[in-house]
Nucleic acid binder design. Structure first.
Length: 591
RNA sequence: GGGGCCGUAGCUCAAUUGGUUAGAGUACCGGACUGUCGAUCCGGUGGUUGGGGGUUCGAGUCCCCUCGGCCUCGCCA
């Protein structure tokens, strides 16, 4: 070992000892007659002193020190003079009087310093990721991430789960996200797909009798990125046999309680609250509502039907919806100009036809360019239904169910953040359950699985699979943390007949189903136990536990929004010979 | 594929209506200083204003194209 201690552990108890530290030069404070050098590693910072009486060799070596050099210092731990202690750091009571110093490796002036106050632009952080990862915040986040995965492994180990690995090179499946493809050298023209999740493998493991499976699995989806989405990400993937939805949720309840307690010091009450998909959409317009604040959606369609205001009346008569939210106290914050911006926002982002609004003035009256179109009694009813008080801003969307949900959810999130309706430190865990089995794809006029095609319907809704697939609900559950979907799972179909039926609804005839999933249909016949499971996005969980607002800050080497790695410059072109072996030729786009 | 924000010194930012030699803080280099810890003080180096084209007497500023980063809709569970 080149060191006897790290840079964060020395204190008064070590005074008098001779120690050797290694680390990066964080800062040098030079006084001519002597220097103070802060040595830094991931454990902390320790002050090294060079004074007039220090050995000449030390003075000479230290003269070559620059920021971010890697150095080794041997010296005596001594108490700092009275009044010179630094309470900000753990080692602030002591310092090292250097007796020996070695420059282990030099460093040119870096593009940014890990300890600088102003965070550089993200592209620079990504290009020099090793410098960025030296920052305390990044080191703390990655340490938290490590404790999350350790906590997960301990928890499932204690609950008799078996940690099982599944293939990375698998078979492409047409459902769901776009696959990352890997060309086969042995079979020209054929491709493996990287897993979007180990879904089918874990179901096969249930059939194989491994009734409690868990894996921390890397997953890949070739879709566009977002602040909370990366093309490769990590899932806590688990599956259980002989369970119902309550059992799976209960198991995750216990995990969340443990992680929140151990890592955040928060005690959460179990079971976590649950709400149906329908309720979530009705009250919040989103299937992963942020429940740290209220501002619930209020339906005023019936009132709109009674007005002369054409926009409202027309929408109500057409069987669509007039719903709104009350941004409490926001009237003075939102000028006409800012409300216009909100209107543009809902129009451009959600194709809403417009945004109707009322400000509640000091007299308690609803003030708005459209107010004259409403009878007094209707205005009163709107006020009371929305619990409107002077100073409030009421925002209404008159549109289809789908658009009103999306637009009101968008507005609610904006308003919640703007009005600071929640504490950033607060954590809220809940479940959303009973998702629909299918969404209707308008373009292709067919049903698509809302979760995935192996999801079991509610037993009570089995009949509706035949009569009204759009109404059939699934044994599905999503874990929601602070308005983010942290994970989702389902009870699976373990009956090959029902599975065939669902494939049929998804537009796959028997032959297509056999081609794509024949192995699973076969396996389901060979004694498949009832089973179900869930996958949690570990990156998102860490992001939320760390209080971050983007997923890249808890991933060691993330991709940019255009899915590139600025450090390694991936993706890149490859040699012709590599392409030849794979029988691949690249078509250059014409333009 | 669509919408939006951004790109100026190594870094973070400023630069009036299009108008003199593009500034500040910090970093870096040199000097001073015996207790600092965001050290302080003095001095200095440092610019293809992301790139290309255009309008203009004159462009960091206006227009077009392009490259890159971020946010977002679509996409994705």
């Amino acid at each position: 070992m080149l060191r006897t201690h790290n840079c964060g552990e020395l204190n008064k108890d070590h005074i008098g000892q001779t120690v050797t530290l290694c680390g990066w030069v964080d800062t040098i404070r030079d006084f001519g007659q002597g220097q103070f050098i802060d040595l830094r590693d991931r454990y902390g910072r320790t002050q090294v002193t060079i004074g007039p009486n220090s050995p000449d060799e030390v003075k000479q070596v230290v003269g070559q020190f620059h920021r971010e050099c890697v150095v080794q210092v041997t010296g005596i731990v001594s108490a700092r003079p009275e009044g010179q202690q630094n309470e900000k750091i753990a080692t602030g009571d002591i310092e090292i009087e250097a007796q020996q110093a070695v420059l282990l490796n030099s460093c040119p002036n870096p593009p940014f310093l890990p300890s600088q106050a102003e965070l550089p632009n993200e592209d620079l952080r990504l290009k020099y990721r090793y410098l960025d990862l030296r920052r305390k915040e990044m080191q703390e986040t990655l340490a938290l991430r490590s404790r999350v995965t350790k906590g997960i492994r301990d928890y499932f180990e204690a609950n008799q789960f078996v940690d099982i690995e599944t293939p990375i090179l698998g078979r492409s499946t047409p459902e769901g996200a776009r696959d990352y493809l890997v060309p086969s050298r042995v079979h020209h023209g054929e491709f493996y797909a990287l897993p979007q999740s180990p879904q089918i493998y874990k179901q096969i493991m249930m059939i194989a009798g491994y009734d409690r499976y868990v894996q921390i699995a890397r997953c890949f989806r070739d879709e566009d990125l977002r602040a909370d989405r990366q093309p490769e990400f990590t899932q806590l993937d688990m599956e259980m046999s002989f369970v119902d939805a309550d059992d799976v949720m209960g198991m995750i309840d216990g995990l969340m309680k443990k992680l929140a307690h151990d890592l955040l010091g928060i005690d959460i009450e179990l079971p976590l609250p649950r709400m149906t998909y329908h309720e979530a959409m009705t009250r919040f317009g989103h299937d992963a509502p942020d429940l740290r604040f209220g501002m619930e959606i209020v339906d005023c369609t019936d009132l709109a039907a009674q007005t002369e205001f054409r926009v409202f009346r027309g929408v109500a008569d057409a069987g669509q919806f007039v719903r709104g939210i009350n941004a409490v106290g926001a009237a003075s914050l939102f000028s006409r100009k800012r409300i216009d911006e909100l209107t543009t926002y809902v129009q451009e982002d959600f194709s809403a036809k417009g945004l109707a609004w009322f400000k509640v003035n000091d007299e308690g009256e609803l003030a708005s360019p459209i107010a004259k179109n409403f009878e007094a009694a209707i205005l009163e009813e709107i006020k009371s239904r929305m619990d409107a008080k002077p100073g409030d801003l009421l925002l209404f969307i008159a549109d289809s169910w789908d658009v009103s949900c999306k637009a009101l959810n968008g507005l609610r999130k904006k308003m919640g953040a703007e009005l600071e309706l929640y504490d950033d430190q607060q954590m809220h865990f809940s479940w959303v359950v009973e998702f629909p089995m299918f969404d209707h794809d308008e373009e292709e006029d067919r049903w698509v699985a809302k979760h995935h095609p192996f999801t079991a319907p509610l037993e009570s809704d089995l009949e509706q699979l035949e009569t009204d697939p759009g109404q059939a609900r699934a044994q599905a559950y999503d874990l929601v943390i602070n308005g983010y979907e942290a994970g989702g799972g389902t009870i699976r179909i373990h009956d090959s007949g029902i599975q065939q039926q669902v494939f049929g609804l998804l537009g796959m005839d028997e032959q297509q189903a056999r081609e794509r999933f024949g192995f699973l249909l076969d396996a389901l016949k060979f004694g498949a136990p009832p089973h179900g499971g869930i996958a949690l996005g570990i990156d998102r969980v860490v992001m939320l536990f760390a209080g971050l607002d983007n997923i890249r800050d808890c991933i060691t080497f993330p991709k940019t929004q255009r899915a590139t790695d600025l450090m390694t410059q991936a993706p890149s072109g490859v040699d012709e010979t590599q392409l030849d072996e794979l029988a691949i030729s690249v078509i250059q786009p014409e333009d």
